Simulated scan of single mutants.
Amino acid sequence: MSETFVDLGVVTAPSGVLVLGMAGWIDQWSELGDPLSVRAMAAARHGGGHLHEPVDGPSRDWSCEAVAVPVAADRPLEVRAETGESYDGPVVTVLEVDLGLSWPGAPDGGPIRLGDLPVDRCGMVLGDARALDSFVGLSGRSIDGLADVRYWGKYEEDAHAHFGGERTRQYGGQGPYGRLDLPLAEADELAGRLQSWLTGGPRSGLVVSVDAHTHFHLLERAGLTHPLLAGQIEIDGCQVLGLGWDPGDHSMRHHGERARGQVYAVTLEQRGTTTLLRWTIPSEAEEAE
């Protein structure tokens, strides 16, 4: 299988600690105990580690998981991915971050294993430990009082003629019709009018979504035009990267997550005198071997 490296941009971590975590759970840590930053800082003091629940036992299925590592606090950290082809297109096979720090192991030493992570169906987040304490997740409040309305399906053209809107952008073509960045009340009112229009006639097969501007949604939106669903936003002055996951690839290869042993190694590795964080997700061909 041919493989390609893709530059995904940079993240910043002025706290000196970087977290790679499951996007669907980032806002849940403080509900289970210490905030994410407290756990991450403690792990980083020991060179990095795997964060999970419960803290004193094996990782619980379908719960919070992340990896935290010390990084250079005074510079952008470059992120790139090695990719391969999967069911619906390109997917990440290696996520790699230059930590901006000297190699902590023996000269010419092998990888240092930090733990393993499943591929979250909601995607992954890479960002500063303290900034991610502020992360507003999937069902949270709008951070700016705005929301996006989208609609698609059998009667989308008829709905567009009645309610307007523009095609939203996504990688490989046009996305659903929608109106973005509406005040919450206006977004809810538009969605209500769309629903009333649907029930006012023999219409079915039109889906209407209202997405508040949570950090989760804005990261997802930022990644829609990228082949790897990678997007960036700013949280508390820090550049944070979100990485969505191809639904077909997740369904066929990662759907069981930790409960089915679908977890993948996170390591520290040496490049010259520099330290890399690497999360390795074998391609389908490599798994078969």
Rank of each mutant, 00 (worst) to 15 (best):
L190D: 00
Q232A: 05
A222T: 01
S251A: 13
H254I: 00
G256Y: 08
L182P: 02
A222R: 00
T199G: 01
A230I: 01
G237A: 14
A222N: 03
L190C: 03
M252V: 09
M252C: 12
H255I: 12
L224V: 04
A265S: 12
G173Q: 09
Y264R: 09
D236C: 15
R258M: 09
T275K: 02
W197L: 13
T199R: 14
E186T: 14
G223S: 04
V208K: 09
Q195T: 14
A222D: 01
H250G: 02
I233H: 06
A230C: 06
Q262R: 15
W197A: 06
T274H: 13
L218V: 04
E234Q: 15
D181V: 13
I235D: 00
G261D: 15
S196D: 13
V266Q: 05
A212P: 09
H254V: 06
P183V: 11
L206M: 11
L229W: 09
G175Y: 13
L182F: 12
S251T: 12
P227N: 05
S209W: 10
R179M: 12
R260N: 09
M252P: 03
Y177I: 08
R271N: 13
G231W: 01
W245E: 03
A212M: 04
D188W: 09
H226A: 00
S251Q: 12
V210T: 05
Q174G: 07
R179V: 14
C238V: 11
H250A: 10
S204M: 07
I233F: 12
Y264C: 09
A222E: 01
E189P: 07
R258E: 04
L194Y: 02
T274G: 02
E234A: 10
I235Y: 01
H217G: 07
G231H: 02
H250F: 12
H226M: 01
Q174L: 08
G261N: 15
S209C: 13
V207H: 08
D236E: 15
L206W: 10
P227C: 08
P176R: 02
G256W: 11
L198S: 10
A212D: 05
Y264I: 05
E186P: 01
G178C: 06
R258Q: 12
R260K: 14
G248E: 11
V266R: 00
A191E: 04
L228D: 00
W245L: 04
L218C: 06
V263R: 11
T199K: 10
S196M: 15
G261I: 14
L218P: 00
V263S: 12
L241E: 03
D236H: 08
F216L: 11
Q195D: 15
P227M: 12
A259N: 11
T274N: 08
R258C: 04
A187V: 15
A222L: 03
R203K: 14
G256K: 14
D188R: 07
A212E: 08
